[in-house]
Amino acid sequence: MRRRIIAAARACDYAQLSKLADEKGKSVRFTFGDGDDVAAYWKEREAEGEPILARLVNVLDLPYALQGGIYYWPWLHVTGVKNPEDWKALSDVYSEAELKGMRETRDSYYGLRVGISKTGDWQLAVSGD
């Protein structure tokens, strides 16, 4: 599933991302707000200047952590930020200003995280608290 998500995101194939999101049922959490169409939501975010698809690829290229039968990318979502090197690993995902904001407001990672179950069910791709 991870490789398929990366391929679809690199191709900017919103239709394929939508299929992958619902492949094993409507279970992908992609926003804390309203929304039931992941493709439409991400297109809107991209139009507003947020590089959501690039972030999706970059996050899935980072190490993961396993918790409760779900693989989470990046690992920091589970382990927390432990040292400056952890922040440095996110430099391909977020700008220095965005990372500085995370460090200053909570000293924790609250950016995009992706969760895929051991059975390959895409569970989430969400940012924020």
Rank of each mutant, 00 (worst) to 15 (best):
A8K: 00
G33Y: 02
V59L: 12
S27W: 05
I70G: 09
D121I: 08
L20W: 00
D13H: 03
C12W: 01
L66F: 05
D37V: 04
Y41D: 09
M1L: 05
L56C: 07
A39V: 03
R106W: 03
V126M: 11
A97R: 15
V114H: 13
Q123V: 11
Y110W: 01
A40L: 05
A65P: 01
I6G: 11
D22E: 10
K100Y: 02
P84V: 06
L53M: 13
A47F: 02
S108N: 13
L90D: 04
Y14K: 10
G68P: 09
K118E: 15
G69E: 08
A40Y: 02
D86T: 01
S91D: 15
S127M: 12
G25V: 10
S117Q: 06
A21F: 05
D107W: 01
L53A: 13
T105E: 05
R4N: 08
H77E: 04
P63H: 04
V93L: 03
R10E: 15
L124K: 10
D86P: 03
D22P: 00
Q123Y: 07
D34T: 08
N58W: 06
T31G: 09
S18L: 09
D107M: 02
W73H: 08
F30T: 04
G101V: 09
Y64N: 12
D129I: 01
V114E: 12
K100Q: 14
E85A: 15
A15C: 02
T79K: 14
K19W: 01
E96W: 07
S18H: 14
R2M: 09
A15W: 00
A97Q: 15
Y109D: 09
L90R: 07
S91Q: 15
A65T: 03
L20H: 00
L66H: 11
L17V: 05
D129Y: 14
D107S: 11
G68H: 13
A39Q: 11
E96Y: 08
G35H: 06
Y64T: 10
L90G: 03
R55S: 12
V114L: 10
E48V: 00
L66P: 02
T119R: 11
S127V: 06
P74W: 05
K19H: 08
P63A: 08
R3L: 10
K88R: 14
A97T: 12
A54W: 08
D36M: 06
L17S: 09
E50F: 13
C12P: 00
A40G: 05
V114A: 14
A54I: 07
V59P: 14
A89G: 06
Q123N: 12
R10T: 05
E85P: 06
S95E: 11
P84Y: 02
R4Q: 14
M1R: 02
L76W: 00
F32C: 07
D86N: 06
R2V: 08
R10I: 01
I70V: 15
D22M: 06
G115M: 09
Y14G: 13
S18Q: 15
T31L: 08
L17R: 04
A11W: 04
G111M: 10
G69R: 09
V126R: 09
L112E: 14
K43I: 07
G69L: 10
L124D: 03
Y110V: 00
C12Y: 04
Y64F: 15
A54P: 06
I116W: 04
V59F: 11
W73Y: 14
E50I: 10
G111F: 07
